[in-house]
């Protein structure tokens, strides 16, 4: 996949080529393009002057980065304590079954990917999932197929906001 050179340069400049801000740069790129391609690492390394190996270290250490594209519609099931107590593992299984992918993987059509998240801080509404930036509370097993269908339709209609 071609990387967006202009965008990455814009991000680097926004953070003033500051070595301390490489995490912020990577986060910006990740949130726009849903993954960190190899060339982005090279570009940042060259422009900011941080060795590639350090950047790769950062990009693999933090959960927030992915080196392969995540789905257009990333679904994360909260695995925090509160959600866990209220049955999150079963929910994760249900999503995995419905989407026919293992957690951490992306569907063949690139539409969905399934992840776990450690508590978006909505424990009062447990069990919780996040879809993109949206937090959805009180999810039951019975709602799983309906939720997937809803987002599937949004993607098909091109109304899903994460679409670049």
């Amino acid at each position: 996949m071609q990387i967006d050179k202009a965008k990455i340069n814009e991000i680097i400049l926004k953070h003033g080529k500051n070595k301390e801000d490489v995490i912020a740069m990577l986060l910006d790129y990740q949130s726009k393009f849903r993954y960190i391609p190899r060339d982005v690492i090279y570009t940042i390394s060259k422009e900011v002057g941080v060795p590639v190996v350090k950047l790769l270290g950062v990009a693999t250490f933090y959960r927030g980065f992915s080196l392969i594209p995540v789905g257009k519609c990333p679904i994360s099931v909260c695995m925090g304590t509160a959600c866990y107590v209220l049955g999150a593992p079963r929910l994760l299984e249900a999503f995995s079954r419905e989407l026919n992918i293992d957690p951490g993987k992306t569907t063949k059509d690139g539409n969905f990917s399934l992840h776990t998240i450690n508590c978006p801080g909505c424990c009062g509404l447990a069990p919780v999932i996040t879809v993109g930036d949206e937090v959805i509370g009180k999810v039951t097993l019975a709602k799983v197929p309906r939720l997937i269908e809803k987002y599937h339709k949004l993607i098909e209609k091109g109304e899903w906001k994460k679409e670049e």
């Binding site: 909260c78 925090g80 304590t81 509160a82 959600c83 450690n118 508590c119 801080g121 424990c123 009062g124």
Partner: peptide, 12 residues
Amino acid sequence: DEGDPGAFMDRS
């Protein structure tokens, strides 16, 4: 950073 999964005091 509020890492404790199952807590949301700091967020709130």
